[in-house]
Design a protein around this nucleic acid. Structure first.
Length: 584
DNA sequence: TTTGCCCCAC
């Protein structure tokens, strides 16, 4: 009886001092003889938010012969701590002790806690060692443990092993499916994640709120609105929309698929209590759609709604300013963050540097980069370089590109920018030098890739891609578009091509960009369709300047809205202009 | 005589 009462006391502890009081009481009353109460207290002390892991370690050190559960409590604590890798060191110590003591053995929970640490610490070698231990100890039939292992592999980026485990698992539950779906989304294989989700549907496996959140994440990546809406229908049918995380994922899905008004509808009509993530998702949604006013209106309302803005709230507000060129507003938000208790991080700096640079305040942007308290990320210098090109500031461009070279960043776009600046000044010798640099430095080129959803499948296009079944028709469509928009005044932006080739070749180099292929395909597929649906394309990089001009003309000539989501924002082309108002 | 899996904004 006393033990049950004591256990209740442990569970009722909500402050560290209560734990310590209980501990001294246990000591005097001799309750530490009971390994059960001891490990309960250890566990409470090492994992709860008000606990103290170092104190738990102290208690542990005074145990003459720690048992399995004492070790588990400590390992569990480290797994959840800021130094998860220490959990693995403790696991190794435990293994050594277990080999000489019959009172202590590595069990399923030990492995589970340690694997959680491997996932958080991104340690693939430790994950593989745990995998070996699990097999050796015959724990492979434990479905929960197996899912933890699968998750550790996928968080470490080893999706093929995760997939193999999934296929070989003797027992799978919904969490196993969820772990693999989430892993595939995080590993940039959202298409396969959706396939797996659909397989659950056809195989009649029950889906829970975690399943739909992961599947919605896949739709967000792909811009797969049809599938996303189907999932949302299921969410409503299954009454999963009382879960705030599910609603947040839905709002994000709608914005990332290009339907920010539908996102707002969900946001506005939701019945579950909004969390800070809900607000942040909506602010960011408006921000990337260039709707700065609506974003900032909500941002201003946070405090009235009992929400303390966090680092992401500020990032979202700054993003809104960045995409709308609201320099004064943005800098004032940035300057006031710290006094509101949120220290700017790299992303905040990235926003404000980009904001100032584009506005032509290159010197201020430069000074911020040079005075910031952490080592600047290369993207900050890239912002400065890009804006130097827009504002034709050779000196600043040289400073920025020198920094990038120093940092070992060999990105082709940076070289192209610098070369363009020289070219604009007629400094052909410098243009030649940059080009030589590009050859000797083995410049990296990230391949451009665009997606479009048509007739229920996602079609992928690379630059000058001829792998699509209908590639000939697509290329013909592009020629038709070029012909028609030339009559509308289109002139190819051949200045964007670096190679020393003739004008016509330069134009050809531009005209089969992945986003052009995708848009042409989209126009082909919805030609004659009664529905006035826009062409929606997703690109992995920033949209190219020539494509931007082409789509403006195309939207007008073909009387069709074109929506392109690039790496950082949405462009909505309608009647010859773009929602970004050419500010991007 | 207890504990463990999978999820949202950046």
């Amino acid at each position: 009886m006393a033990r049950v009462y004591m256990e209740t006391l442990i569970q009722r502890c909500v402050t560290f001092s209560q734990i310590k009081q209980l501990q001294s009481h246990f000591l005097t009353a001799g309750h530490f003889q009971s390994s059960f109460l001891r490990s309960r207290l250890l566990d409470r002390c090492s994992v709860s938010s008000f606990g103290d892991l170092s104190h738990a370690v102290q208690i542990f050190r005074h145990i003459p012969k720690p048992l399995t559960n004492d070790w588990n409590a400590i390992i569990r604590g480290f797994a959840a701590s800021s130094q998860p890798s220490l959990a693995f060191s403790w696991f190794c110590s435990m293994l050594r002790q277990a080999s000489s003591s019959s009172m202590c053995r590595v069990d399923a929970l030990t492995c589970s806690f340690t694997l959680k640490a491997c996932a958080r610490a991104l340690c693939s070698s430790a994950t593989a060692q745990l995998h070996g231990q699990i097999n050796r100890r015959g724990l492979f039939a434990d479905a929960l443990l197996c899912t933890t292992l699968l998750d550790a592999y996928s968080k470490n980026g080893d999706l093929s092993t995760a997939q193999k485990l999934f296929d070989e698992m003797p027992v799978r539950d919904v969490a196993s499916w969820n772990a693999l779906i989430a892993g595939l989304v995080a590993g940039n294989r959202a298409n396969e994640a959706l396939e797996l989700y659909k397989r659950m549907e056809t195989e009649g496996i029950s889906r829970n709120e975690i399943t739909v959140v992961a599947a919605l994440g896949a739709c967000s990546h792909l811009g797969a609105i049809k599938e996303g809406e189907k999932i949302y229908d299921y969410i409503k049918d299954a009454n999963l929309d009382q879960n705030v995380i599910v609603v947040n994922a839905t709002i994000d899905m709608y914005t990332k698929c290009g339907f920010v008004d539908k996102a707002f509808q969900v946001f506005d009509q939701m019945t579950s209590k909004k969390s800070v993530v809900t607000w942040n998702t909506m602010i960011m949604g408006f921000a990337v759609h260039g709707e700065a006013q609506r974003a900032l209106e909500i941002f201003e309302k946070l405090n009235h709604n009992g929400i303390t803005p966090d680092d992401v709230s500020y990032l979202a507000a700054l993003t809104a300013c960045r995409h709308a060129g609201l320099v004064e507003y943005g800098t004032s938000i940035f300057n006031n963050m710290a006094s509101n208790g949120v220290e700017p991080n790299m992303k905040h700096y990235g926003c404000v540097v980009d904001l100032l640079s584009r506005a032509g305040r290159l010197r201020e942007a430069h000074d911020i980069i040079c005075s910031m308290p952490m080592l600047p990320d290369p993207v900050l210098w890239q912002s400065l370089l890009g804006a130097s090109e827009i504002h034709k500031n050779v000196e600043m461009a040289e400073i920025a590109s020198r920094k990038l070279i120093e940092m070992g960043v060999n990105n082709d776009g940076d070289f192209v920018l610098l070369s363009n600046i020289y070219a604009a000044q007629g400094r052909w010798k410098d243009v030649g030098r940059v080009r030589d640099d590009m050859e000797t430095k083995q410049v990296k080129k990230v391949p451009g890739l665009s997606y479009i959803e048509a007739q229920g499948t996602i079609h992928k296009f690379y630059n000058s891609d001829k792998s699509h079944q209908q590639w000939r028709e697509i290329y013909e469509k592009i020629d038709e578009i070029r012909f028609k928009i030339r009559e509308d005044g289109y002139v190819a932006q051949t200045g964007l091509v670096l190679h020393d080739i003739g004008e016509e070749e330069k134009e050809n180099a531009l005209c089969y960009h992945s986003e052009k292929l995708a848009v042409a395909y989209g126009l082909m597929m919805i030609d004659g369709a009664e529905e006035e649906s826009p062409v929606r394309v997703i690109k992995n990089l920033r949209i190219c300047g020539d494509c931007h001009v082409v789509f403006k003309h195309t939207s007008k000539i073909y009387k069709r809205e074109i929506i392109v989501r690039d790496r950082v924002r949405f462009h909505r082309f309608k009647d010859g202009s773009c929602s970004c108002r050419d500010y991007w």
